[in-house]
Nucleic acid binder design. Structure first.
Lengths: 214, 214
DNA sequence: GTTTATTTGACAATTATTTCACATTTGCTA
DNA sequence: TAGCAAATGTGAAATAATTGTCAAATAAAC
């Protein structure tokens, strides 16, 4: 497995392959050709083969791909073959909603703590975890070897928080705040943005465009 | 303003331009050059000019772009210059969290109703709206001329719901369910997917990759 | 055991996107 | 009002991503 220069576009598609393969396993399918998978996923077979070949030859000519094997190989590539301790910073509606999402734990993202800056939330229990104050962060991150911090705070507070998190060894930030962190985050910290507003605007654009065409 | 063949990549960036321009307005900045904006946004000035020119010449040579004007033009392009009545289907944690997000209303996405399939939730109030049962959907969509349905339901229920929604005139679906709707949705219905699991997996990939490099 | 059908992996061709470079226009200063 | 500096818009070049094609390998059929 080689890690040189995999394009962003390929990485973006990998989780989707992983999802479809998981569904195939559930359905008891043992093997699949790039052509059949392409029909299901509405992408070209060529793209599937090209994408997978970035990481090595997982298929066999004349046979196709073994579903379970491919599924587990993609899991390895995505780092889903181990546990990632995760915390949530910001125990508002969205933070609590994410905390209650059990799906993530199945994929190895283990929620070990929830934090907020608002003292009124201190000690409130969310899915068995008591909300803690951010001054407890440094010790907590070390103790639980937290890798990922989910940021569900307002813009202004999110930016302050980034420094605290990275200073204390956080290596990845899942950012729901309506701002880019890239500037303030050191280059060895990975950031994945989920900008819901932007997603909604794209929907609006396509909706508007569709209406105009009529 | 022309609507022919704007690339997906351009549309993906538009909301981000819109956000930065909004911040510039807040900061009292009246004009900006593609070069200065490129520094702030960490993209090339050329890309900014190229992107904006898809929709017409908003700038002026020797001057740059008028921030307020450009902001309002992008709003028009994105369809943010009018109100989009929206409903949420699925009043679980995520559905309720999104319902409580006031930010969306400022951009014209007006939440008019919340629905669920679980009778136990009937009548429960979320931000002043009583959760309704899905059998009330057809009448409601017509009455409030609902455009957008936010789907925060489990996979299996989401797929059933798509037919009900589109049969009753919904034109856009903001999909948080862990599945692709494209197959079941008619081609005149716009779908925007927010697959949080996939986002988290991309984070995991980049984290894993970063660790391997060390 | 031989033949036929299937299917990958690799590479070439095509298409899409991004960046470069510069003529042209405008604002600003003296 | 002339001259200089700034900055867009645009066509061309460079880069990136996707799709098409086919030899080689394998499975399945007979």
């Amino acid at each position: 497995m080689e890690d040189k220069d995999i394009s962003r576009a390929v990485i973006k598609r990998l989780p989707r392959y992983y999802r479809y393969l998981g569904e195939l396993i559930e359905d008891g399918v043992e093997r699949i050709s790039s052509n059949e998978l392409s029909n299901r996923m509405k992408v070209t077979a060529s793209q599937i083969r090209q994408d997978l070949n970035n990481f090595g030859g997982f298929g066999q000519q004349g046979y196709g791909y073994n579903v379970k094997y491919l599924h587990s190989e993609i899991a390895k590539i995505l780092g889903l073959d181990r546990t990632h301790p995760m915390i949530i910073i910001g125990a508002g509606n969205l933070g609590q909603a994410l905390a209650n999402y059990t799906q993530f734990e199945k994929q190895g993202f283990k929620l070990v703590g929830i934090f907020d800056v608002n003292p009124i939330l201190k000690g409130v229990s969310v899915r068995g975890l008591e909300i803690q104050m951010v001054d407890e962060l440094p010790e907590f991150i070390k103790k639980y070897q937290v890798e990922i911090a989910t940021l569900t705070l307002p813009k202004s507070k999110a930016l302050e928080m980034v420094k605290v998190l990275t200073d204390n060894g956080i290596k990845a930030i899942w950012n729901f705040a309506h701002t880019d962190l890239n500037l303030s985050a050191p280059s060895d910290v990975v950031v994945e943005n989920v900008h819901l507003s932007e997603s909604l605007m794209r929907l609006s654009y396509n909706l508007t465009r569709r209406e105009k065409e009529e």
